[in-house]
């Protein structure tokens, strides 16, 4: 299992050609209390950098972009009833969707945790 990160503050945890996508701790803190999340349904095709999910705080709605291209295998249905899971457990229970990657080479363009941490430090 390897974790990769985007500049838009999504993470993807990859096992072979299967990935799990969510938003980072930095992202959930910046958004504040999450009151609504919309995840993609199974079978939906997503593209790298394209809209894939929506997360809303009291103040605003934000898009979640897919870190890689592929086909959604599951959305996290728990977020419908408990959107606050994204705040409480952004990198575990608060995941958004799982997908079958169509091009694992896209992972090479993402950051590893050390690079992401450095990127975030530069934003603060």
């Amino acid at each position: 299992m390897t974790m990769y990160f985007t500049k838009d503050h999504e993470w993807i945890s990859v096992d072979g050609s299967l990935g799990t996508v969510g938003i980072t701790d930095y992202a959930q803190k910046a958004l504040g209390d999450i009151v609504y999340a919309e995840v993609p349904e199974k079978g939906r095709k997503v593209t790298k950098g394209g809209d894939s999910a929506v997360v809303e705080s009291v103040k605003a709605a934000s898009e979640v972009y897919s870190p890689v291209s592929g086909t959604v295998t599951a959305g996290n249905d728990a977020l419908a009833g408990q959107p606050a899971l994204v705040n409480e457990s952004p990198e575990a229970d608060g995941w958004f969707f799982k997908l079958e990657l169509s091009n694992t080479a896209e992972l090479e363009e993402l950051m590893d945790r050390a690079a992401y941490d450095e990127y975030v430090a530069g934003l603060e």
Binding site: G32, D33, S57, V58, K59
Partner: peptide, 11 residues
């Protein structure tokens, strides 16, 4: 716009 309590908690 908000304090550490957050918008939801402040509301």
């Amino acid at each position: 716009v908000q304090y550490p309590l957050g918008v939801l908690g402040e509301h």
